[in-house]
Design a protein around this nucleic acid. Structure first.
Lengths: 225, 225
DNA sequence: CCAAAAGTGTTCCGTCTACACCCATGG
DNA sequence: CCATGGGTGTAGACGGAACACTTTTGG
């Protein structure tokens, strides 16, 4: 039961986006150097203030769209971060959101325009404010969810090989997976469909391309890695 | 990379507390009727605004302390709720926190003073604003965490019987558990210690009382229900 | 012809599940 | 003496983990 508004002070609220990508068998994050004070020049997540006429998710989607040109990305709230002095300038509470994107869908000129870089997760520098904490929590949640939700497909092209899929799981979980056991498991899911197409780019022999059938998945949305 | 503060508008930020208790083999929530506008008279979680000089957790702890007189409760953030019109009066973003308390530790006169009631989880009325959503997410998270963290002890007295413990799990997971299998599992945890004490209150024969040894748990903090 | 990745089954072991009866006591 | 909850063990099913070789082809 909230008390009356007027007795209390308002604060700024922002969103910060933790953008995961997958390339070269590594999980990567998109970060950039802050181009404004406070914290100018420090590595940082990309964010923005929440406007008075937008929902939190809308604000996060706006920031993501500006940055990537992509809509309908997978996006999930990570949590609210509100230590008093987390922003050295003013009191700002930030809601962190995590997004998964397919690096290939992402226009690299936009990346350069915003001065962003892909960093391997295990080579992350010290970031501005509490952004490292946000990432830590995002990874924790991602590792949980990847086991019960078909998320990996968001990090891959719509057609992918089973080896690529396996590498995504390995990168997120941080451990190697047995190839035969993995494929055996995948075969039990109807919504991961083999196509007639062959990828001849990543191997000499060629590998079958698969696709994630969202409709089939929604008919029976059970998934257990 | 956040933009300059001044271009953007501030909003009110509140915390709302989802307080779980356990009694009569049921999981319960503490809610009350709003005593102020907007929403006067509607059932509601208890909350409060975040002051400019406190962290989010501090605000939640303050609200919890005022309400229960208890400190050092188990408390975890559930998430930020920020739909534009979630508060009918003004734009208020709320961070939901979930707490677990032992009903017996709770001074019932405080409950009456604040006009609060314990409601069974499965008999929850329609609550003010998005509070039902908050509860839904809190339960989802609780069900996840209860499997990997020793949380149930927060809902029980420091001395408890194995049957009580089992009932907590059953109430949270919403399914019956086999007594023998449950006890077999519990015996594998060193940090759940049998005492010499006997509870003669809940049964004629008497049941051994156990205690959760936090120190032992911290030495080897692995737990899997 | 060789390096590099794709593809494919079986066995073993440990864990989870199902299941029923005796015990102690207060009323 | 009986109703109530406390306490205990085993066998079978199932799922997860370990493990190695053949195929294809581009260079």
């Amino acid at each position: 039961m909230t008390q009356y508004y007027s007795e209390h002070s308002k604060v700024w609220v922002s969103v910060d986006c933790i953008i995961f990508g997958f390339e070269g068998n590594k999980l990567k994050l998109l970060i950039g150097k802050r181009q404004m004070d406070p914290g100018r020049g420090e590595w940082s997540l990309y964010g923005g203030f929440v406007n008075s006429n937008e929902n939190l998710e809308d604000a996060a989607n706006r920031v993501l769209y500006n940055l990537t040109g992509l809509r309908k990305l997978y996006m999930k709230q990570v949590g609210a971060f509100g230590a008093i002095d987390r922003d050295p300038g003013e009191r700002v509470i930030s809601i962190a959101y995590c997004a998964l994107i397919n690096v290939k869908d992402y226009d690299d000129s936009l990346r350069e325009q915003y001065g962003l870089e892909w960093f391997n997760l295990d080579e992350m520098p010290k970031l501005y404010s509490d952004h490292n904490e946000m990432i830590k929590k995002a990874i924790f949640l991602l590792r949980q969810r990847i086991k019960t939700e078909p998320l990996s497909f968001n990090l891959l092209p719509s057609l992918f090989t089973l080896t690529q899929l396996q590498r995504v799981y390995e990168a997120i979980l941080g451990q190697e997976i047995d190839k035969r056991n993995f494929r055996k498991r995948i075969k039990t899911f109807d919504f991961i469909e083999k196509t007639d197409l062959i990828d001849k780019f990543h191997s000499k022999r060629g590998a079958a391309l698969y696709r994630f059938n969202k409709k089939t998945y929604n008919e029976d949305p059970t998934f257990k890695l």
